[in-house]
Design a protein around this nucleic acid. Structure first.
Length: 419
RNA sequence: GGAGAGAUGGCUGAGCGGUUGAAAGCACCGGUCUUGAAAACCGGCAAAGGGGCAACUCUUUCCUGGGUUCGAAUCCCAGUCUCUCCGCCA
């Protein structure tokens, strides 16, 4: 969420900076409401002052007047509240401003490749897709999931389930032991307010699974990513600067409706309603966001390098970035069956955008109270890493070689095969 | 599901109708002392919003929303959350 105070100061450049996002926002209404709001506040404060003085004086002759003022205040407050609600509605639906590094563009076709890494494997046979491999092995079962649950779910079985679990442990170990993240095992449900904090609500309610607990209680949602719950650890806090940078990592299931992606990636487990993901979150001093983004992205690519999977790093263009992000790198892994790179991680700096929503602040050396910077990144999406390993490490006979770094996590298993 | 207790500043915790934005302690910052540090002592230290070029100033905020009152952190009502005990389940 944006700070109106700052917007007011230089409205034209605010407008201009959001142009890259290609959205139509009614800026005039925003400005108009802001002005009205401030007028009401001023009127209200004048009356409040008058009332306060009367009650301080304890002059009985003025008591009747004080009552009159009260009803006048009430009237103005009501009007002011309506204006403020409208103002907040508009404001909470405006995305973050793209950083100056971010290239202009409409959609994913305008994203720019930063670099490539790793060797694309050469096969002396036609490589199979992960779902063919998985079904042949009897270790991926989509039909069974359809029976028990519905579409876009999968049963992962046997050695592939072990591989999935190994990936989670392996990634967590690296992030905790080498990269300095604190491991968290968080709740998988988040309150509406928490979802607002990271920007999933109000605009993207359609993508979320809502869970009904008891009537009359706060609304709850299954987390679409651990980012939501990890970032909100610092909600409503004024942090001690010694606490920064704070780095959290969690491996959790994620739940997404994938509304609007009907017909996209319907085969296989690329796009599921439920998937595991290892998520990194950093809370930093606001001017350190860019450095932290590079660091975090390196943590993500580091995993791919250890797994010896070929990937490329992309910087997302303004039109393809997420709502809360100011700058995003996508890491894409090579998938032989598709003969192209697919997203396996997304690392974003959200500048102070989420902190303003969450009311997360810290005091700097000058004792100024400032909003914190927040970042999040996948390190990595487990389901897609599983796919990438299956496809890149597949053998002619349909077996899959286990990457060396994972073997200690899999009882030294070297090959996943039918037998 | 049954019975109680509570929600106050970065934290702990007083206040229970009238300069209370709120005692005290801790933490933090500055200073004195010290070769340096610790201790001790002195001083400072809430946030949000409005107005002003600024110094500054005004308003709001003691869980949330209503109510009583000239006046509420303090009284009344509703809600949310937390804790304790009993029951039930993991």
């Amino acid at each position: 969420m944006h700070n109106l105070k700052i917007i007011r100061k230089d409205f034209e450049s605010f407008k201009k900076s959001l142009k890259k996002r290609l959205l139509d926002i009614d800026f005039n209404e925003l400005l108009d409401l802001d002005e009205k709001n401030r007028n009401f506040i001023q009127k209200k404060e004048t009356l409040e002052k008058e009332k306060k003085d009367i009650s301080k004086s304890k002059d009985k002759a003025l008591f009747a007047k004080s009552k009159e003022i009260s009803s006048a205040i009430e009237k103005i407050s009501k009007e002011q509240k309506i204006i403020k609600t409208n103002l907040d509605n508009i404001l909470s639906n405006i995305p973050n401003i793209p950083h100056s590094d971010v290239p202009d563009g409409k959609n994913e076709n305008d994203n720019i490749e930063i670099n490539k890494s790793g060797q694309i494997p050469k096969f002396d046979f036609t490589p199979k897709s992960h779902y063919e491999l998985g079904e042949n092995l009897g270790m991926l079962d989509f039909d069974l999931a359809t029976k028990t649950t519905g579409s876009r779910f999968v049963f992962v079985k046997n050695k592939l389930a072990l591989l999935e679990r190994a990936l989670s442990n392996f990634m967590l170990d690296i992030h905790v032991l080498k990269n300095g993240y604190e491991e968290i095992s968080p709740p998988l449900l988040a309150s509406a307010n928490t979802m607002f904090g990271t920007g999933q609500l109000p605009k993207f309610e359609n993508d979320q699974f809502e869970v009904k607990l008891e009537d009359g209680t706060d609304r709850k949602f299954l987390i679409p990513t651990a980012e939501v719950i990890l970032t909100n650890i610092v909600k409503d806090k004024i942090l001690d600067i010694k606490f920064l940078p704070a780095r959290f990592v969690a491996s959790t299931p994620c739940f997404r409706k994938e509304a609007g992606s009907y017909g996209k990636d319907t085969k296989g487990m690329i796009r599921q309603h439920q998937f595991y993901k290892v998520e990194m979150v950093s809370i930093v001093e606001q001017e350190k966001c860019m450095d932290e983004l590079e660091r975090m992205t390196n943590c993500a690519t580091g995993i791919l390098e250890l797994l010896e999977l070929p990937y490329r790093k992309m910087i997302l263009c303004s039109g393809d970035m997420g709502f809360s992000s100011e700058k995003t790198y996508d890491i894409e892994v090579w998938l032989p069956s598709e003969n192209k790179y697919r997203e396996i991680s997304s690392c974003s700096s959200c500048s102070t955008f989420q902190a303003v929503r969450m009311k997360t602040r810290y005091k700097n050396q000058k004792k100024e109270t400032l909003f914190a910077g927040t970042l999040n990144g996948s390190g990595l999406a487990i389901g897609r890493t599983l796919i990438a390993i299956m496809e890149n490490y597949q053998q002619k006979d349909g077996s899959i070689t286990v990457p060396k770094v994972l073997r200690p996590y899999m009882n030294n298993l070297e090959k996943i095969s039918v037998n």
